[in-house]
Design a protein around this nucleic acid. Structure first.
Length: 927
RNA sequence: GCUCGGGUGGUGGAAUAGGUAGACACGCAGGACUUAAAAUCCUGUGGACAGAAAUGUCCGUACGGGUUCGAUUCCCGUUCCGAGCACCA
């Protein structure tokens, strides 16, 4: 193929030229500039996997790049950086399988990612690139960890405070008056504190630190040889790799995220995030308001108090038994000798079940009686204490008061073990199931009788507090984050052990660099690979051998971009004060309960310490949808090497086989390519329809095994990055998941060629002239300006592309080649298709880059309508799409064409004097 | 089970403080240019009925109701699909 005209749209050449122009001139390098308003547009940085990018990955990057370029045109100083979340399990798993050090594969993957990203024409300031595995970056991850180690959470001031100050308080007053987020089991006085040994003091302080080492039930994944955070586990399987996960008690580093639960919840209201994402976070934080109640227990030989949490204090008269989680520490005390054997058998049985089984077999009723009885503090009745796996150790106190009449789980349990059920709401039917709804009038409930449930809940709590039986309590589902991983490829902890006491490294010794090791194999007993590293010591003391989890490096990276080369601080105060926070954050929903919780926590912690000026990191957040794959199928006739076309397949008995989508165009199979694809099909025969082989198709996840992966490089080579960018936006609403379908891309590509032709004549000569534009042309332009502006602000990029198409068609029809119009058009399109825009911008004689141009100013005067053909509605209400004011007394009504019969019907023959019409509004007409 | 989204042509999707449903694009069909192909351009394209035709009539936004002069849009119920949470007391 040779170009017949000398100036046809040669996207390959144009794109390469401008990409190297941008990178050599550093067009998108950004610096603090107090004379301009700032805007910070951030993408969730990628994990550089070995598979490279497919067309789904850049969707969000394209959207954010459009927005960033738009904001630059609007006069903002735009920070738009990119980097890599480079620590993580896959590189290490790969290292275990192949012996290749993760440093090496990660570096290779990053290079490959960069090459792919560069082809798409993003306006990143690459001088700010960060990699989480780079010691100069993870120095600050370790630094933040040390800060958390050195702080505790004061619930009175509601912020993190230095642990040294806490030590002073302990020395003066003990811990009785300290209102802290902690898990310290004991209360001590000033004297006791001073009498404690050094080790005892350290153990106690550990219970207050925000980063602390503590025994806890963790998600242990034996196949990965590491513990995992709650958000890394789904349905009892690890998210990475799908390996089974079990609950195990282990001593682990943890972050006291739970201390921030209320603040994390409360400030959600002020964020410009989607409702669904906020809702997900609210569920994850899981606030529930209720009361913690005390039940006296008597097992015949000793008295004992049991606490339970309930949101239904109103149902206390209906408590007919208590249930403990199998992991509960109270079991030992409460089990009477006669029941000991049975209880032990039951606990052994529970242990044999995996977490997964416990979750899937939720309807199986199991349990055992401890032999002890508690006293219902209100009814005074003796009630048995049971153990059952349906009660979870990790929530509340690990024990419940059972109200079988009004809780379905308690009901099932009670019916199964023949325990009494007392209804508490007038007229409720509990013969077959419990009555869980919080409505109705209380009965059988002493002083609560006659109240509605709504009234009874607070009334009961007040009474409980008055009688000193418990107190009002708010519980959160959010747990502290388990922060150690028994793996190699992560940030080392700046911690060493002196006589078994965890000691922090001084800040001056950071970064503590990850040592090179020979074997990456984790041991099944939880011994991390770093245990085998040579000289992994600090001043002769052993260093911590776990490493930090994946979310550590991503928790503050947005701050580092503000000041990426700073050797003295994570971010300088001046850089932080200028850039403040991320104004627009784009990424997938998969991080809703992981990264987005942790970085909000991390940011609030740094805010408490005064290192950052905003207490929330991401003001507006947009979730782009997932791009799914569109698989193609061929149909092989059973036991043959013969393939039948889609519409004829029902006449045969066939097997459906995935075929590489790259061998298929518009669902037509390239037969020769297919034969070459796999030796098995070398001699394949085909039954065609109309001379073609039509493939079937289906929407599936984009993956190698489905042969439906489309590489952006292929699209860039065939159509150019501008076409790819516009097509990805044209595919549908940004936030919606949708399948990739290469079939439609021609339309967008055709549009760009048509756009190009507005500037050139048949011989390829530039035909842009300086004639003044006509009113019609200005109207097209200004309608488009408004549309582009509105759409970008509302992230409705798909409809903008349509608007461009319409406008270009109209201008083509008008044979408009006027500079005044076309130059503005080039600016408008530059966020979407930056390469072609740069090319045309410079061909029009402008310099140096369209990125430095100003966004066109919309002038409503040009878009005024002069005739109106909208119907009049009932009650004399009008709805118009244009803004105008008409004085009907002056006869302007004649310009209103009222041809709709409804007009006559509802204007009631009255004379209309005046209407004022505002776009999109319905206004009453004065008659 | 609970919570939140969402069902519009052959396909992706437009249009919602209620006002001409199907913009734009793909696909398909026909045509122009061409020796031919590619590229480009033009016309048609929700369904049914009537008409030689221009055109007209009726039905259509998952299903059934409701409010309204008017509903894809608001309300109630049903159903299907998707996402998240899931013994959270």
């Amino acid at each position: 193929m040779t170009g017949s005209s000398k100036m046809e749209y040669n996207f390959t050449e144009i794109e390469q030229r401008w990409q190297s122009y941008w990178s050599s001139r550093k067009t998108f390098k950004v610096q603090i500039d107090p004379s301009k308003p700032k805007f910070y547009v951030l993408d969730m940085f990628p994990y550089p996997s070995g598979a490279g990018l497919h067309v789904g990955h850049p969707l969000g990057y394209i959207a954010s790049d459009i927005y960033a370029r738009y904001k630059r045109l609007k006069g903002y100083n735009v920070l738009h950086p990119m980097g890599y979340d480079a620590f993580g399990l896959p590189a290490e798993q790969y290292a275990i399988q192949t012996g290749q050090p993760p440093q090496k594969t990660t570096e290779e993957n990053i290079r490959r990612y960069r090459k792919q990203l560069d082809k798409l024409g993003f306006s990143y300031d690459w001088d700010r690139e960060i990699q989480t595995c780079d010691p100069s970056y993870y120095k600050w991850t370790q630094w933040a960890f040390l800060k958390m180690f050195h702080h505790w959470y004061n619930k009175d001031s509601n912020k993190a405070e230095p642990i040294d100050e806490l030590v002073n308080v302990f020395t003066r007053r003990g811990n009785g008056s300290v209102n802290a987020a902690h898990h310290c089991p004991i209360t001590f006085s000033s004297e006791q504190w001073q009498a404690f040994s050094e080790n005892e003091k350290e153990d106690i302080l550990m219970c207050y630190r925000i980063a602390y080492l503590g025994e806890t039930s963790v998600n242990w994944c034996a196949d990965l040889g590491t513990v995992l955070a709650n958000d890394e586990v789904k349905e009892g399987l690890s998210i990475r790799g799908g390996h089974p996960v079990e609950q195990k008690k282990m001593k682990q580093w943890q972050l006291r995220v739970s201390a921030y639960a209320e603040r994390l919840l409360e400030s959600l209201d002020h964020l410009d995030w989607s409702d669904s994402l906020k809702e997900m976070q609210r569920n994850w934080i899981g606030r529930s308001d209720g009361a913690e109640l005390e039940f006296a227990v008597n097992n015949g030989s000793q008295e004992f108090t049991m606490n339970v949490f309930t949101t239904r204090a109103d149902t206390i008269f209906g408590v007919t038994f208590m249930v403990l989680a199998p992991e509960s520490e109270w079991i030992e005390k409460l089990t009477v000798p006669e029941n000991k054997k049975e209880v032990e058998e039951y606990l052994a049985y529970v242990k044999t079940k995996t977490e997964r089984e416990r979750m899937t077999e939720t309807h199986r009723v199991t349990g055992v009686f401890t032999g002890s009885y508690a006293t219902n503090p209100f009814s005074g009745k003796e009630i048995p204490v049971w153990i059952s796996e349906y009660v979870m150790a990790g929530y509340g106190t690990g024990a419940i008061m059972a109200v079988p009449a009004h809780d379905s789980r308690d009901y099932i349990f009670a019916r199964h073990f023949n325990l009494p059920v007392i209804p508490l709401i007038e007229g409720c039917d509990i013969s077959h199931e419990s009555f869980d709804a919080k409505e109705g009038i209380m009965c059988n409930s002493g002083f609560l009788n006659g109240m509605t449930v709504e009234e009874a809940i607070p009334a009961a709590i007040i009474e409980v507090e008055k009688r000193n039986l418990g107190k009002r309590k708010t519980n959160y589902r959010l747990r502290d984050a388990i922060f150690s991983r028994q793996r190699y490829w992560g940030e080392p902890f700046p911690i060493y052990y002196e006589d078994g006491i965890a000691r922090p490294l001084p800040e001056s010794s950071l970064p503590l660099e990850l040592p090179a090791i020979e074997s990456f194999q984790p041991s099944p007993d939880g011994e991390p690979p770093l245990a085998k590293a040579k000289n992994w010591t600090y001043r002769g003391f052993p260093l911590e051998t776990s490493t930090m989890p994946g979310f550590a490096g991503s928790s503050a990276y947005y701050l580092r971009y503000m000041d990426p080369q700073n050797q003295e601080a994570l971010v300088s105060a001046s850089a932080n004060n200028y850039w403040q926070h991320v104004d627009l954050y784009i990424g997938g929903t998969e991080h809703a309960t992981g990264h987005l919780i942790y970085s909000r926590f991390w940011n609030k912690f740094l805010y408490d310490l005064g290192y950052v000026c905003k207490d929330e990191p991401f003001r507006k957040l947009v979730n782009q949808g997932m791009i799914q794959g569109r698989s193609n199928f061929v149909y092989r006739i059973k036991n043959t090497n013969k393939f039948v076309s889609y519409n004829l397949k029902d006449q045969y008995e066939t097997t459906e086989i995935h075929v590489d989508v790259n061998l298929v165009t518009n669902d037509r199979l390239d037969l020769d390519a297919f034969r070459k694809w796999n030796p098995e099909y070398k001699n394949a025969k085909f039954i065609l329809e109309n001379g073609e082989y039509i493939c079937g198709w289906a929407i599936e996840k984009m993956s190698k095994s489905m042969f439906n992966v489309v590489n952006p490089d292929t699209i860039c080579a065939g159509y150019g990055a501008d076409t790819l960018r516009m097509y990805e936006m044209f595919l549908g609403p940004l936030e919606q998941s949708k399948p990739w379908d290469t079939n439609g891309i021609d339309g967008v590509h055709r549009f760009l060629k048509k756009f190009w032709r507005l500037f050139f004549d048949k011989d390829g000569e530039l035909i842009v002239n300086n004639t003044d534009p006509a009113e019609k042309e200005l109207k097209i332009l200004h309608n488009l300006i408004r549309k582009v502006e509105d759409d970008i602000e509302n992230f409705s990029f798909n409809t903008t592309i349509s608007a461009f198409m319409i406008s270009v068609n109209e201008l083509t029809d008008l044979n408009c080649h006027k500079r005044q119009i076309l130059e503005q058009l080039v600016i408008l399109i530059s966020p979407y298709a930056p390469h072609i825009a740069e090319e045309l911008w410079s061909l029009l004689g402008n310099s140096p880059s369209v990125a430095n141009a100003s966004f066109p100013v919309f002038n409503p005067a040009y878009t005024k309508e002069d005739t109106f053909e909208y119907p009049v509605s009932f009650n004399g209400k009008f709805r118009f799409k244009k803004q105008l004011a008409l004085d009907l007394d002056k006869g302007e009504i004649e310009r209103l064409v009222m041809e709709d019969e409804r007009t006559e019907k509802y204007s009631g023959g009255k004379k209309i004097r005046k209407i004022i019409v505002v776009p999109g509004k319905i206004i009453n007409i004065v008659v």
